[in-house]
Write a protein that binds this DNA or RNA. Structure first.
Lengths: 115, 115
DNA sequence: TATAATATATAGATAATCTATATATGTCAA
DNA sequence: TTGACATATATAGATTATCTATATATTATA
């Protein structure tokens, strides 16, 4: 099932930060890794990713550096910074609240598991 | 915690259909009921709600009628239609997939409870 | 009678996706 | 070696769902 783009809207930053919380990655790798980890549910477009990475770097959440670890082509790697880790924690907390409240409404006011 | 608007984006239609799946309501009542059921997490603005109701009615998901059951003022009630119920089922299915995949990514690839 | 809450409505702003396009490198088959 | 394709990064403009701001009218309350 294709997930509508506006449902994904708002969680993309959290997902990217989560990927980078595990290890440094370059842009294209993040697209592949996110698709892999989500069983092809989240297939981010390059036109979405790169501007988002630039803005996260501009805001001090990420730091980028160029490298070619396999001696092929130079790739632009991103590393999560201190503020990025803090933002990730906030986004995860927000997600837990948001999803539990959605589930509560769907259950007709009955409290769902978790939270 | 205030939930950022773009995280809510895309689930508003599902939530409104869910409310109307329980009983007919008028616009302002939906805002109150959604806030109540979500512990004030989802506080929809009138400027968001009314255009959305109009578009859902235009698409045949809802039917509206005017009534004043308490003999005070006339209110515009909305009733969920057949296509609206179908759309609600789809949206709920999409939500379950979406949320489980987000949780899977957050758990680092480990499967979460449910789904 | 004035003020606030209720109720509906619409125009325009904002923001996060998307598509489309551009450019360049690396791989592989003909 | 040349062409085609996948990889990789980038940006401009379109789309869309929310928001804010504003308008209008009714009802309740001080």
């Amino acid at each position: 099932m294709k997930i509508s783009k506006n449902l994904l809207s708002g969680s993309t930053t959290m997902l990217l930060l989560k990927l980078l919380d595990n290890k440094d990655m370059y842009g294209y790798e993040m697209i592949d890794e996110l698709a892999k980890r989500s069983d092809d549910t989240f297939t981010l477009k390059a036109g979405t990713l790169y501007p988002l990475l630039h803005s996260l770097e501009k805001d001090g959440m990420l730091i980028s550096y160029e490298e070619n670890p396999d001696n092929s082509r130079v790739r632009k790697y991103y590393s999560i910074h201190k503020d990025g880790k803090k933002l990730l924690k906030e986004k995860e907390k927000e997600w837990k609240i948001y999803s539990s409240k959605i589930n509560k409404v769907l259950e007709g006011g009955v409290k769902f598991e978790g939270i």
